[in-house]
Design a protein around this nucleic acid. Structure first.
Lengths: 193, 193
DNA sequence: TTCATTTATTGAACTTGTTCAATGTTTTTA
DNA sequence: TAAAAACATTGAACAAGTTCAATAAATGAA
């Protein structure tokens, strides 16, 4: 059950088998049905999660009711609202399963326990946070500099597997455009081929 | 000279006086004249820096020659291209002083030394990376959901000191709009008062 | 299988933001 | 202190993206 998690850890740090075992035992599995929520706006995020099956979206709803997707998470990705989790503040985000999903969750206390007793874990999360930060930094630049057409083409190229599992509604909310406009972009691109 | 750095460290972790001394001694001061560069596109970023005086901008130039500002850094902020620094890749960014500035730099080797010999430092950078990630995440949502007018007003409210030190050209490049359009926004807002 | 719900497409009118070019203002520097 | 350089403003024409409403297509649940 925790096999994919073990592989994910091994990718980032070298942890003894015993320590790996101790760390992985801090996680609890949870099954989330399609359209159910792992976190809702206003709740404090009490977990950090590792997806072993399915697909989630992490999103925000603004004043006018529009949804902005911060990121998706499929198998072997981590999910949390790091803002709410680390600062203990009510979340501004929703985390929703877009497919029947399975996720391994660790609580804040158990994560603190790991930081204290397994010093390498501190490194694991530093490296992971760095990676997600780099990815977000690249996305920020792309959003500032590229047209919606180009961002759509980039998305397909960068996440071909994920793309196939998402509706255009979800992709539009990630790209930051209306789904009607995405539809027009798709038509334009199809015409060019 | 390293006093502000010491205070910044103390904000995040508790490090003994001796360890603080060891860590701070790994930094070297560098003076950067206005309009000079700490990093240019194509170079590998070999440092992480702590600004003790002045103002920097970290930006990207896209294919069409437009500049996108990822962030500014004034006194007590850290600067680096974390992507290039951690992955050893050529940077896609420029880091330029917008005022005569002073910065304390630590090399990659010395940072590794600190990680190995001062375990709390691992925590320092994990926490700092988390914080910058949270800030970027909020900015991403704002960019996806808010109009340029609102982002401009938010910027002034959030960074009143910084705002006074920046030209409208720089602010526009941060907000992701043309400086002409920013000028029109300013006119509209001024008319409302 | 059928009916209801969700998702996708399209067009027209509209809003937001860009581009270019001209002009005025401020700041630097010799 | 004068000239040059950088910065800011404005208008007009244009491009990118939204909104709303109607319709079609796909999916899901009973």
């Amino acid at each position: 059950m925790t096999e994919p998690l073990k592989q994910n850890i091994a990718k980032h740090i070298s942890l003894s088998e015993k320590e790996t075992e101790v760390f992985c035992n801090l996680f609890q599995q949870r099954l989330i049905k399609k359209k159910s929520f792992l976190l809702k706006e206003g709740e404090v995020c009490k977990f950090e999660g590792f997806v072993t099956k399915g697909l989630f979206r992490v999103y925000h709803i603004d004043k006018s009711g529009a949804e902005q997707i911060l990121y998706f998470a499929i198998e072997n990705w981590w999910i949390t609202d790091i803002d709410s989790f680390t600062n203990g503040l009510p979340s501004q985000l929703f985390i929703e399963a877009l497919e029947d999903s399975e996720v391994l969750l660790i609580s804040k206390n158990d994560k603190e326990f790991a930081y204290t007793n397994l010093p390498e874990i501190e490194k694991l999360f530093r490296v992971m946070t760095q990676k997600t930060h780099v990815a977000l930094q690249r996305r920020m630049i792309d959003n500032l500099s590229k047209t919606a057409d180009q961002r759509y083409l980039d998305f397909i190229e960068k996440y071909p597997k994920l793309y196939q599992r998402l509706s255009n509604l979800q992709i539009a909310a990630y790209l930051g455009i209306s789904h009607e406009f995405l539809s027009k972009i798709r038509k334009k691109i199809a015409g060019k081929k």
